[in-house]
Amino acid sequence: MKIGIFSLSCCEGCSVQFLNLEEKILDLLKHFGIENFRLAKEYNEMPVDIAFVEGTPTNREEILKLLKIRKDCNVLVALGTCAVTGGVSAMVNTMSKKEAMEVYGGFPPEMPVDPKPLDYYVDVDYHLYGCPFSKEELMELITSIILGKKYKDKEYSVCVECSLRENNCLLDQGYLCLGPITRGGCKALCPSNGKPCLGCRGPYEDANIKGHIKVLQDIGFSKEEIIEALSLFSYEKLKEVIGWLKEE
């Protein structure tokens, strides 16, 4: 099978994470040829069986690129937060165009398209969450594809994995932690190292977001602080609830 790794607008951290697989990449190469990987290869070919796409389109060219990738692959995987939720790029959507131009100093000259999750433009077969994505989950997905198993998104929060690691709860210590609404699968990497969850994996389907907003307000966080935290990685997914919170 052939795989390709493609980048749209992003930091390309997920591509780097692919290289971080180290010895597992050799395992991978027994089953796959990496046909397309700008960061690591000179000659790139299409079509591929599995396309991993990181980043999010921020101009028309990139939208076309994405559509072309979709056409030339069997399985499309949204790789990392930017591809899954619009990510950090989508923060620009919280501002007015005028504000945004101020931030970017009038560059680029032509106002780009609003950053959106990939599934806004094309059908996405699998999502790999996180900034960057989790290596374990990537291997799980690839194993599932090889064995013909269904790969299922984790339908539980970071809190589940955090409490299984017997961590001290950061909410109890007064941190603005988004663990309770953020999709698990990262093995609670940040909270296990004393840093509150920023929600880089985005909210999971069943998340009780309004419930968590209430918890954060009870701790003493202001509306603005909560909105800022929710907008950091998941503005596109949480637009509605953020709007509701602003109104309240």
Binding site: Y156, V160, S163, P180, A207, N208, K210
Partner: peptide, 13 residues
């Protein structure tokens, strides 16, 4: 049901 965040902590401890 409105309050619960379904984090499962109560089960694990």
């Amino acid at each position: 049901g409105k309050l619960c965040l379904s984090c499962g902590k109560c089960n694990f401890v």
